[in-house]
């Protein structure tokens, strides 16, 4: 059997340095197939960004990781520095939330987009030609002229396209997107998403899409993982998640989201989201859960499969959420 494009298995991440020592992720497992779009959804402190960044071994300083993160069967956590550099340049790319904070404001757009190609040994002229093609493919007009411009001459939406172009330069098989449209206006968001999903289809690239927005994840992804306090609590097809959420947290998130097509006012989930370090024993969501039983606070519920959905809830079989 050929290995999956991305397979994260039982990933634990913890900070070990002194007073800040604390766990961040606990037993995270997820996978992305070739050409598949997968959403990773959670609120602040859920560990979704750390999970995403671990695929490039971009762990917080002083962090230790256990488990495995394999790209095409190769473990990212144990590979050599040289192989890791190569992986970041050619196999897996990442786009971040704030393009203004991630693109060097003192360098021209052309330098940003060609950096990886030049480092990989491509000639300057070839790299620039290729960069112009990439800018054109993300909908930037007059790409040749754009290469000579500086980041401040672009709007946020345009600069986010530049970041996507830069991420595509190495023709990655897997694209990691960490809240790539959160800082953008809604109409700009739609445009950037259209570009992302279009390119994914053309290049049959795998996509791991990290967001706090369940609706957005469901609108563009095949499958969605929901994280809470450093653990994955539910994984389902995007449609299944909306039709029949299996975890009380997922159903709580759905009920809290204001909806255009519904008169039902958004309902908050009592309490606030916690990180893994603050989580009590047992199910981390139990304190906010209307269905919690004494048993819920004893052990961390195991993730298991029910009708194609994966759920980590003690009462998943008996409960049905609307």
């Amino acid at each position: 059997m050929t290995p999956r494009l991305l397979e994260i298995e039982n990933l634990d991440v913890r900070l070990t340095a002194g007073r800040a020592a604390r766990p961040i992720l606990d037993g995270v497992s997820l996978h992305v197939g070739r050409g598949e779009a997968v959403g990773l959804v959670g609120e602040s402190g859920s560990g979704k960004s750390v999970t995403c960044r671990s695929v490039l071994r971009l762990l917080p300083e002083g962090a230790e990781a256990a488990g495995s993160v394999r790209v095409d069967g190769e473990d990212v956590l144990t590979m050599s520095a040289a192989r890791l550099r190569d992986l970041r340049r050619n196999d897996v790319s990442m786009i971040f939330q704030d393009p203004r904070a991630s693109i060097n404001p003192l360098r021209r757009i052309g330098d940003f987009v060609t950096e990886g190609m030049r480092a990989g040994g491509m000639s300057r002229d070839d790299a620039l030609r290729r960069a112009a093609e990439l800018l054109e493919s993300v909908g930037i007009r007059e790409p040749r002229a754009a290469l000579r411009r500086y980041p401040h001459e672009f709007s946020g939406g345009m600069l986010q396209r530049v970041m996507i172009a830069g991420a595509l330069a190495g023709e990655p098989r897997l694209l990691l997107a960490d809240e790539p449209t959160t800082a953008l206006d809604v109409t700009t968001q739609a445009e950037v998403i259209a570009i992302l999903t279009g390119l994914r289809g053309e290049r049959s690239m795998g996509l791991l899409f990290v967001t706090h927005d369940l609706e957005l994840a469901a609108a563009i992804c095949d499958r969605v993982y929901v994280m809470y306090a450093g653990r994955i609590v539910e994984a389902q097809t995007a449609g299944g998640l909306f039709d029949r959420p299996r975890h009380p947290y997922t159903s709580g998130l759905l009920a809290a989201t204001p909806r255009l097509e519904s008169d039902r006012p958004p309902r908050g989930v009592p309490g606030r989201p916690v990180s893994l370090a603050e989580a009590p024993a047992g199910c981390a969501f139990a304190a906010r859960c209307a269905h919690a039983r004494p048993a819920c606070t004893r052990d961390v519920p195991a993730r298991r499969e029910i009708d194609g959905a994966h759920v980590a809830c003690l009462r998943a079989e008996e409960l049905s959420h609307d």
């Binding site: 609120e43 809290a256 204001p258 908050g268 989930v269």
Partner: peptide, 11 residues
């Protein structure tokens, strides 16, 4: 704010 908190504040 997080979605689950936003709804509390709206209430």
């Amino acid at each position: 704010l997080d979605v689950s908190i936003q709804a509390q504040i709206l209430d």
